[in-house]
Design a protein around this nucleic acid. Structure first.
Lengths: 137, 137
DNA sequence: AGCTTTTGTTTACAACTGTAACCATTATAC
DNA sequence: GTATAATGGTTACAGTTGTAAACAAAAGCT
């Protein structure tokens, strides 16, 4: 049953950058990845390939045959990865409370009108969901 | 003018634990720190002391004389530390948008009534602040 | 003053990260 | 079909992190 690395899987800073690349543009050949990385970070080909290897070992990406050529593609979604780190941060720094995070953050950082509106919308949505559930209960 | 480490200063997981200890209870002697750490994480004395040293080097904590005894105390606030990491995570994983984080988070994690209320309150507060500023402009 | 305990400093070491050169294999070009 | 270029795999190496033993200095005890 070889436990499919569903457990830890954290990405390092450098690994994130490779993943960004792959998330943006589904399957990419090694060539494509190294070129893009070269452009956006200045990494040498080798560096990118090392990252691809490590990500492969971690189970974060896989390889596939597209018309003869081997290509890399993400096996975890950006959302998943982001969430994992978010949970981490929340528990480490905010006792798991997202509202605490928001509070701390806004103490230093001004939010744009759009962000505020979006959050209102989100909260409203959440309340709806909650109500539905309550009705069903 | 020896630039007072105002630049990077990130805490590792282990370092956070020591800091938590110090944030909870202002100045603590080495003894007290190591004892608490032993209790809550099982670390050996040495390990805690190493962390204290590294934190000192980073400028995250300092030492003070309290009635003859040397004691350690935080030089950065928990809020500051948390904020630093939050900004990090936001830029790495959410294009810097806190509303995006909230959205992603709530897709997986249910929020309690209290959290929702708190956030409403926070947003309202922010709007007030914004208005005041607009008037003043 | 000499021995014991407490406390702090130095040193160690394996795992993980960032970075990349070097080598092997495969595909291309003449 | 051999030289050349493209691609991918192996090895390296310094810095950081988690963890702690060893060693040194200070404080107490008798």
């Amino acid at each position: 049953m070889e436990k499919n690395q569903v457990k830890k899987l954290t990405l390092t800073e450098a690994e994130w950058q490779i993943m960004e690349c792959l998330w943006e543009s589904a399957p990419l050949t090694g060539r494509e990845v190294t070129e893009r990385m070269e452009k956006r970070t200045g990494w040498s080909r080798s560096t990118s390939l090392t990252m691809l290897r490590r990500l492969g070992e971690k189970g974060a990406i896989g390889e596939a045959e597209g018309d003869g050529k081997k290509a890399f593609l993400p096996l975890i979604s950006r959302d998943d990865a982001a969430l994992r780190e978010t949970e981490d941060l929340l528990s480490r720094a905010y006792h798991g409370s997202v509202s605490l995070l928001l509070s701390a953050f806004t103490k230093k950082q001004r939010l744009s009108r759009e962000e505020i509106d979006e959050m209102y919308a989100l909260l409203a949505e959440l309340e709806n969901k909650n109500e539905e559930e309550t009705e069903n209960a």
